[in-house]
């Protein structure tokens, strides 16, 4: 399972970087979104995969017994997803406004603020 997830993360990063290097506004954003997903999955994977063992405390114990899944990475991923979603939504609207104002989605044409 780890191998599969690792391959998926690698694929997401490769695709993300490829899209990031395109000249199109929207493709750049798609690249960032793919990279964001890759990062989220990576955190999840780094917390170790322990299927079927939720971190629940039995009724008569004070702490979970035996091997149990680490809940922290999932909390981190949840936070990161929410933040990423907000930022990506903002970036998409910004890209649309920029397109309306500049009448181009070619990043090579968007050089008026360069020095």
């Amino acid at each position: 399972m780890e191998i599969v997830l690792a391959l998926v993360i690698g694929g997401l990063f490769a695709g993300g970087v490829y899209m990031l290097l395109r000249r199109n506004l929207v493709k750049l954003l798609v690249g960032l979104i793919l990279l964001g997903h890759g990062a989220n999955l990576l955190i999840f994977l780094m917390g170790r995969l322990i299927p079927g063992r939720p971190p629940l405390v039995p009724v008569d114990a004070t702490h979970p017994v035996g091997l149990f899944a680490d809940p922290l990475p999932q909390a981190l991923v949840l936070t990161a997803i929410v933040i990423g979603f907000g930022l990506q939504a903002f970036a998409l609207v910004l890209a649309r406004r920029l397109y309306q104002s500049a009448h181009t989605d070619d990043l090579d044409q968007l050089r008026t603020t360069e020095t």
Binding site: A39, L42, I43, L45, R48, L72, L76, A80
Partner: peptide, 9 residues
């Protein structure tokens, strides 16, 4: 985020 994830790992 990637760095934080690996650091935790």
């Amino acid at each position: 985020l990637v760095a934080v994830g690996i650091l935790y790992g």
